[in-house]
Design a protein around this nucleic acid. Sequence first.
DNA 1: GTCAATTCACATGAAAGAGACCACGGTCTAGTG
DNA 2: CTAGACCGTGGTCTCTTTCATGTGAATTGACGA
Length: 399
Amino acid sequence: MVNLDKIFDSVGSRSLFKNKQMMQSNYNPENIPHRDKEIDHIASVLAPSLLGQKTSNLFIYGKTGTGKTLSVQHVADELTKRTKDSKILRIEYINCKLKKVADTEYRIFAELIKKIGGEIPSTGLPTDQVYKKFVELLEENDEKLLIIILDEIDQAIKKISDGFLYNLMRLNSELNKTQISIIGISNDAKFLEMIDPRVKSSLSEEEMIFSPYNATQLQDILKKRAEESFKDGVVSEGVIAKCAAYAARETGDARRALDLLRVAGEIAERVSSPKIEIKHIDEANEKIERDKILDIIETAPRQFQLVLYSIIELTKNEKDGIFTGDVYNFYNELCKKTNFEILTQRRVGDIIAEFDMLGLINARVVSKGRQGRTREIRLDIPENVLKKSKDILIDSLAI
DNA sequence: GTCAATTCACATGAAAGAGACCACGGTCTAGTG
DNA sequence: CTAGACCGTGGTCTCTTTCATGTGAATTGACGA
């Protein structure tokens, strides 16, 4: 019972935050700086919906953290406000990437039905019944227009196939009273190229692109948020600039910049610093990175952990790149030793590819001539996180 | 030396199976009047 | 007679296996200079 009282008592007075929520990445700000043009555009595309007319399908591209979702939701909110009491318009937002919620055709429709006010079991029904139910529900509700915002739609299409979009469009001809429009938000600019041209033509879409924020814009955004969420004089000179520079150097991701600043604030708070200093930004950057990696490792399935452990062990000796075959052999031995089930090389190859996607390793397909074709794998976990990562793996696998 | 064919060691794709989860409808059982 | 327990069927979904096909350059071997 050491000094708990002291810690708890001081938490209020010591806090650097005035309103921490505003620093959270899910916070929805009133106004969105540097996106006026885009918001105007979205609004003008969607404007006909106020009269209950079908709008063009809109597809929005842009890297993460460029304000796509925020802008769309902003416009959607305004529209909903205006049509609140009339049965003209309904806008529903669905994030297609959320696992277990909306990452399959069935689940997307189930989610839609739930949002519109229907009941649907989370599994067990044939998809076409979910379809039918959805149609019925729409007919019952007799709104003129339903706008579906599909966030991260590229993920969904990749997983489900583009027939899903086609089906959605086809519904328009089945429905009497209601029409459906789609707003697709995608990180991948090449996403529309993946779609079957026939489907594409049925979409009759409008496209727009969100370009990344540059450092100045990021600074601006950060400054505005910081003013509202930190107490006065807490943010030292240059901190915001540094934050913005960090984020701009990578992808212009505003969310990341905000996270950086928030975590820096938390760190400063923890070490009882009265101000956020530049060094806290560096620490925050490291912490975010570390937490991300450790979280991935910790929550990964057993087999993934086994493969990763193999890679780490092999990398220790072989400094310059190891190959899929090496990993598989090591993994094989490891499984035998630890009595885990052994997966096929095909599967392990996929697992390695997924680690590459997650950024834990760096895998490059190389052809070594007569020695065949493989992935050249390099570990991409920073030195200072490696030890801890390994501990987690050993612990979790009971090696 | 040059050139095309060969060959390696996987990558990459497609399809399909196993097993978990679940809904639905029918049948059986026990409780009720 | 009826409500609830129980079962079989059929559905989705994830992870995995199986089978098939693709691939880039080092190597090989034939060829001509």
